[in-house]
């Protein structure tokens, strides 16, 4: 098959994107819709710890939180997954045994992506062999900026193969791409190479996820779906720390891709502090009182 010329990816008008986002953020989500949305959001969170200071104990605490978000509120969902470095996958798998919470591991020389193909493949294999259900890889932004789109494509394809049954999330690190045109191009490359999810950010670079960048990626997913019939998931990550914003993301998904994508199989939030804000909102909806952080554990 002839290689795709990714420089021909659709063009994006940034001001137009912002106009569309303004329409979405003007949506008002009330009452039962809000409650449903908040529950959905909790269930879509990839509870994340990706720090140099991570330890087995820290990861275990996080896993506990993923399953027991706030036990005083009945019928809460779990988060979708916990997301850790490869060397903590074993710990997380053990801690989450018996739950539905998936273990996601970053890989491929996260977060810079600067390493050899061998190391990246090995990184992925170790994560998968240790039981990771999902792999969050980073693309080679340097190669991408140099215009070596085929290199980027083939690397993703190789990692996808190494993932086996694990689902592959491809982090574009949109904060380093610079324009929406390039975000769109990178999205197209990742999806063509077999990504199960495309993801905005590592969380290490600002700006991380934003609504506009997510809209560009969702529209890429839509076009890919129409062209191939294959659904691809979306994961904005970093910078999503409150419920209102989370609901705006969900409205954007609903209006761009529709109800099929509104499950944690196809949409995730990469976040560490979002869960508590959502929980506080749920508690407020239930009790009518505004909440204090003191009552919500910070694992």
């Amino acid at each position: 098959m002839a290689k795709q010329d990714y420089s021909l990816s659709p063009k994006i008008d940034q001001v137009g994107i912002l106009d569309r986002v303004a329409r979405i953020t003007a949506r008002s989500i009330k009452n039962e819709s809000k409650m449903q949305g908040l529950m959905m959001a909790l269930n879509m969170i990839d509870l994340t710890t990706l720090e140099g200071a991570d330890t087995d104990e820290k990861v275990k605490q996080l896993c506990y939180k993923a399953v027991h978000l706030h036990d005083s509120i009945p019928n809460l969902p779990t988060t979708a997954a916990v997301c850790v470095y490869p060397n903590f996958v074993k710990t997380a798998v053990k801690a989450l045994k018996g739950s539905n919470v998936k273990v996601a591991s970053v890989a491929t020389a996260f977060p810079s992506g600067h390493s050899s193909r061998e190391i990246k493949l090995m990184d992925t294999k170790i994560a998968v062999d240790n039981g990771a259900h999902e792999v969050d890889m980073v693309i080679s932004r340097g190669k991408f900026h140099s215009g070596e789109y085929n290199f980027v494509h083939d690397e993703i394809a190789a990692i996808k193969e190494a993932c086996g049954k694990a689902r592959l999330k491809v982090i574009l690190e949109t904060g380093e791409l610079g324009t929406f045109d390039k975000v769109r191009r990178a999205s197209d490359i990742a999806m063509d190479a077999g990504a199960d999810f495309i993801k905005t950010s590592t969380g290490k670079i600002k700006p991380a996820a934003t609504l506009p960048v997510t809209l560009v990626m969702l529209e890429a997913i839509k076009d890919h779906y129409y062209n191939t019939g294959r659904m691809v998931g979306m994961k904005p990550a970093g910078g999503i720390s409150n419920s209102k914003l989370a609901l705006q993301y969900l409205i954007m998904v609903k209006e761009t891709l529709g109800g099929q994508w509104l499950t944690n199989e196809w949409f995730r939030f990469g976040a560490s502090s979002l869960a508590n804000d959502v929980l506080m909102q749920i508690a407020k909806q239930n009790s009518g009182n505004y909440q204090s952080k003191d009552y919500f554990s910070i694992d």
């Binding site: 008008d13 940034q14 001001v15 912002l18 904060g175 610079g178 324009t179 929406f180 700006p207």
Partner: peptide, 13 residues
């Protein structure tokens, strides 16, 4: 005509 507003700091990006 729109003026793209992607600054070096990426503030509106």
């Amino acid at each position: 005509h729109p003026i793209e507003a992607i600054s070096a700091t990426g503030s509106v990006y």
